[in-house]
Each structure stands twice: as structure tokens, then as C-alpha cells.
Amino acid sequence: MEAMVKKYQQKFRKVRDEMSRWDELQTRLISQFISASSIIQRLQVLQDSKNYGSLNCVAGVEDALLRKQLESLEVIFLSLKRTMEEFHGIVFSIEKVHRDGRQQIKGGSNQPSAKQLQLRVGVKPTLADCLDGLMVLYDMHHSEYLLKASVVSALSTLTLKPSASDLCALQQLLIDQPNIPKDEGRQMTKEEDNKDKEQSSNLMCHITCKFGKNFK
């Protein structure tokens, strides 16, 4: 039994690595989202020649600027798509860890009894705890991935009729990651130091503050 719990420990370690990659991706996603949404918000201002001031003496500047901005927007959308694919990869790999874990218990030659599943050795968690933990982790990341995917696709529809408050709300949704309660996730993977997480969320705060201040 103890050996099996050890194996689970390895699995959790793998999930923890995936989660720290998730955090990196999250930072990248937010900065990509912010770049896209600031371009989207600018588009309307850029479409009015009254806003060009002295630049009006440069023939064609309005068209050129709009074209350039739309090009950059397209590039950002492409990289957003790539980031989302990487998120999907993480979800996939957590799912695999979870499936393997279940296989190990339910499909193995010596299936542990219900009693063995609840057996606790020292301070180590029971097998049932481990299995549930993996399940919850997979669920959290899977639903968060779905949420992010729909936010990103909402962003592209907003390009046509931008609204600053909508963009802000979507951004907040991405930052908050409502499906992944920070404390819970940490406890499960027995992650002792959460410095990285704090840093990344501080960074996000920082970015949003800066973003909100400009041109207001």
C-alpha cells in the first residue's frame, strides 16, 4: 500500500510541474490579452480623422496606421490561439495522470479493497484521497480551460463593436481564474512555497493598474 501511495506522490509532482507551466502560460495569456484589448479599444479613435491633429498633413497616415494596427492584432490573435493550445496540452496531460492513477487501482491485478483505499499510513494520505485529489485538479483545470477558450473567442467578436467595460470584465475573468481556487490547488500538490504564484499575480495587478491609468 505504501508503495502505491509513493507512486501517487510522483503523479502529484508531475501535476505540480504542469501547474507551474500553467502559471507561466497564464502570465503570457494576460499580457497578450491586454495588448489585443488595448488595440481594440484604440480602433475607434484611430478611425476618426479629427483625432490626428498635426498628423493630418501626412497623406494616408490614417489608413496606414489602421492597417498596421489590424495586422498586429491579427498576430496577437494567432499567438493567443497558440497559448490556448498549450493550455489544452496541460489539461490533457493532467487528465492522463488522473486516468493512469485510476487505472492503477481499478485495472491492476491486485485491486485494493474499499478498506485498503481508506487505509492511512502515518501522515500520508489515503489512496482514495489521492485519487479524489487528482480528479479535482483535473476538473479545475479542464473547466478553467473551457472558460478561457470562450473568453478568448468573445474577444475576437468584440473587435467589431468594442466596449471598454466588456473588455475589462473579460480581462478580470481571465485573471481571476474562478475555477482554480488558489489555496486548494496548492494544498493538494503540497506546494510549500507559493512565491511564484504571488509574484505572477502581483505582476498582473501591476499590469492592470498601468493599463487602467493610461489615457484616462
Binding site: R42, L46, N51, G53, L55, V61, L65, Q69, F215
Partner: peptide, 15 residues
């Protein structure tokens, strides 16, 4: 402010 925003955007975009 809108004009200033367009100026900054023009700087950034390097058309």
C-alpha cells in the same frame, strides 16, 4: 487626449 493617443500609437506602429 484622443489626439495624444493617436500620436503615441503612431510612434508605436512605425508605419
Amino acid at each position: 487626449p484622443e489626439v495624444l493617443q493617436v500620436y503615441i500609437t503612431t510612434w508605436l506602429a512605425e508605419v
